[in-house]
């Protein structure tokens, strides 16, 4: 039976939105991560980071697969066939990679958010959600260790590295609130018993964990409270960076969406 068959029409629509949101986050970040391949600062790190990129893309595939039966679209159609305004990833994740400090900080902060999200999903009432969350969490444990290691290394790596890390923290946290933007359909998921609570309410735990993770390295942590993003990816408002990303990503696939590649 396809996932969500026991929910109301509204419930199924809400679940579809949430799955797309998670899938798009993972796909866009995984794509950005993969852009480092062959150019990471150390050959050994290049190899490790390529695994992280593969993990994110394959996590996206897991979420898209759940949506396939709900929407009657293949996972490739979902990943490659949607327009910019239909994408639900957070704006933070579509930003270009910048320097290694931005990449490390963004990925680490996102991994904390994803950890909270998947932890909540371990308590979802739908077994498919729980099992995908479990699979993802097994791989994410490494990501968190890897991120913590690099954050420490860069924050304590001398004046320039510290400066760049601080700058990265400022930029990343200015947009991190968008990861937990409250959305209208969240309440439906709670009402129909899919999730124990609205995912956007994880923001508070997220702020605490980010403070703990970054604070131990002598980094100043800008407040997330007052920031307002100019664009909110969660409701399909994206910038030219996503447009360019989608164009590159879809270049071959869209040349013939009906073909087998």
């Amino acid at each position: 039976m396809p996932i969500g068959h026991e929910l109301s029409g509204e419930g199924r629509a809400a679940l579809g939105e949430y799955l797309l949101l998670m899938a798009d986050d993972e796909l866009v970040l995984g794509h950005r991560d993969s852009e480092w391949c062959a150019f990471a600062p150390l050959i050994e790190e290049d190899i490790a980071f390529a695994s992280i990129a593969q993990d994110e893309i394959s996590h996206a595939a897991l979420w898209y697969e759940l949506i396939e039966s709900m929407r009657g679209l293949s996972r490739d159609q979902l990943a490659f066939g949607r327009r910019e305004s239909e994408m639900r990833n957070a704006t933070l994740l579509e930003r270009e990679n910048g320097d290694w400090a931005f990449t490390v900080v963004r990925h680490y902060v996102y991994d904390i958010a994803d950890d909270l999200r998947t932890e909540q999903l371990l308590h979802a009432n739908e077994p498919l959600l729980r099992s995908v969350a479990q699979r993802i969490r097994r791989e994410e444990r490494y990501h968190l260790e890897h991120g913590a290691m690099w954050l420490g290394r860069l924050a304590h790596g001398g004046a320039e590295a510290h400066r760049r890390t601080q700058h990265a923290v400022d930029r990343v946290l200015a947009e991190s609130r968008g990861l937990f933007h409250p959305l209208a359909w969240e309440q439906v998921l709670v009402k129909e018993g899919v999730l124990p609570d609205r995912p956007s309410r994880l923001l508070r735990a997220f702020v605490e964990r980010v403070h703990a993770a970054l604070g131990e390295h002598g980094l100043q942590i800008p407040s997330l409270a007052e920031k307002r993003e100019s664009r909110c990816g969660r409701i399909g408002h994206h910038g030219p960076e996503l447009a360019s990303l989608l164009q590159t990503m879809g270049e071959v696939w869209r040349s013939d969406p009906a073909a087998t590649w």
Partner: peptide, 9 residues
């Protein structure tokens, strides 16, 4: 280069 310096610190 700045990352390599950070690794040497």
């Amino acid at each position: 280069l700045w990352v390599r310096d950070a690794m040497a610190t």
